[in-house]
Design a protein around this nucleic acid. Sequence first.
DNA 1: TCCCATAGCTAGGATTCCTACCTATCCAGC
DNA 2: GCTGGATAGGTAGGAATCCTAGCTATGGGA
Lengths: 114, 114
Amino acid sequence: MKAEAQALKGHLDVLLLATLEDGPRHGYAIKEALREGSGGRFDLPTGTVYPALHRLERARLITGSWSTVDGRRRRSYRLTAKGSRQLAADRGSWREFAAAVTALLERRPWPATP
Amino acid sequence: MKAEAQALKGHLDVLLLATLEDGPRHGYAIKEALREGSGGRFDLPTGTVYPALHRLERARLITGSWSTVDGRRRRSYRLTAKGSRQLAADRGSWREFAAAVTALLERRPWPATP
DNA sequence: TCCCATAGCTAGGATTCCTACCTATCCAGC
DNA sequence: GCTGGATAGGTAGGAATCCTAGCTATGGGA
């Protein structure tokens, strides 16, 4: 395994949901949004993105619909109500998680610092 | 799978290394340090901690030695030079990773904001 | 004409973390 | 004396996730 691989480590779902917060996007556009929104850091292979979208759809967090634009078929996804709630919850979880890891790595006392 | 499980998502190694930065600790003490240092958030099962320590030892990031204290056998671990370097690198990776995820979730423009 | 960007997909492997289980000692409470 | 919890170590196996590697197909620019 490459050293820098496995970069997402379980946080992919919340990122995918977040890209849909402003409105529907198709898979490839989601992938591009993550790449651009992260300064190139999250340049995910399609073998990561598409299965993850299918997983979110099975979980009813997003719904997809087919369309054709310029001769290319697209599957456009949007957040469901459940997905919206999940996104809000996951954002909170991320903040707590990041705070806890940072506290341990920066060796600050828990819970808060000046 | 429980909703809140898989809490560490690939960041366990850097946390384990960080607990050894102040000096040697044995496995159980490492587990306790993570629990206390995270305000109880990272209360890891031993089935997570011990195999991870063995993994780090195999990778020569830490070295362990047996001792007996109060009739209990302990395996005390300390950082190797390689482990120290890895910790420094992983800290940097964490900062970048956390910044990228936060930027996407808080929808701040990349790379920086006031 | 050929290649790149766009757009979608799957199979299988590697890794990681957790659940569930095990042994054993020391000490406090009953 | 006995029991249970905290301390201390461990393993086996499963579930989940992400990546690699491969595939099809269209449109447009060099």
